[in-house]
Amino acid sequence: MSSAAHAPRSWLIGHPDAAINLRVDRRNVLVCALLALCCAALVIASLCAGTLALSLHEVWAALSGEGSPLATAVVTQWRLPRAVTALVLGAALGISGAIFQSLVRNPLGSPDIISFNTGAHTGALVTIILLGGSYVEIAGGAIVGGLATALVVYALAWRRGIHGFRLIVIGIAVSAMLGAFNTWLSITGSLESALTAALWAAGSLNGMTWAKSLPASAFCVLAMAAAMLLARRMQFLEMGDDCAAALGIPAERTRLLLMALGTTLIAASTAAAGPISFIALAAPQIARRLCHNRSTLTGAAGVGAALLLAADFVAQHCFTPRQLPVGVVTVSIGGIYLVYLLIREARRS
């Protein structure tokens, strides 16, 4: 670590006195670049691998429209939408998690503190059991259920402003109720519908197509851009409402805006792929450790995307002929990685 003491810790873009001056943390940039490389490698790997194994060259030919019709169809219609969805949704989940953890200032904070996932699960279960549940119906039910729940939690927690701790407690309480309702639905329904619901609830990218992916992905990209614009305000807000107000930031409005963005991201990803657990919780924590205890939205997005891509690769290819729902794998991989980080951190100190 001695060399780090001599090297500059951050780079300055522009000049301190100039109109444009932006301090960029060196490690942050390096980490983000590495994460981007990692994501690119994973996307390429997922385009190549599968029952029809393709070489890099063949994939490139397919993408540029010069490959065989079969390879082109497999790459552009099956594998690419799935990889792109994993990339976008992973980043969206990471950012959403970072937003909520920052808002409630608790590393256990995840979008689930406003019970979105549980509500979405309830919505999906109800549509599966009552309506049978096509893809669109389930997605719609999940969004309605999730948003309605988030609104109820927010309304119940509102009392002359939103208080982080009260929000968490009320979110837990509402989650517990809906979770109990879900359990009840799953033991009263037939085995078939309960199993369909369980598969949906694990979160899955199986059978992803452009038609399913595009609306949600476009939505996520927009919301992520908006979140990036608010990133600075979010950091000030972490210093406390008074401090933020002194810096000219309307605390309550910013918080509401951030919460709306976080919920939008989660809603879009849940509609597209079901509730993919753990990425929103783990990505910001992992990014924070990679970036030496600095929280960044870009870091969280990168880690989220890399995690989801890797998990989906495993879910698709490691248990052939069966395909697992990706959520099952995200939970395991994320958990193992968190354990590894904890142990490594302990060794260092």
Binding site: L191, V329, G334, G335
Partner: peptide, 28 residues
Amino acid sequence: RFILAGVAVGSVLFGLSSGLVLLNPGAY
């Protein structure tokens, strides 16, 4: 650290459990 360790180990086990169960409807 303790909480994070619990969350991490718990979620690995949860993931393995759901994997096993989803591949095995009778057990589910």
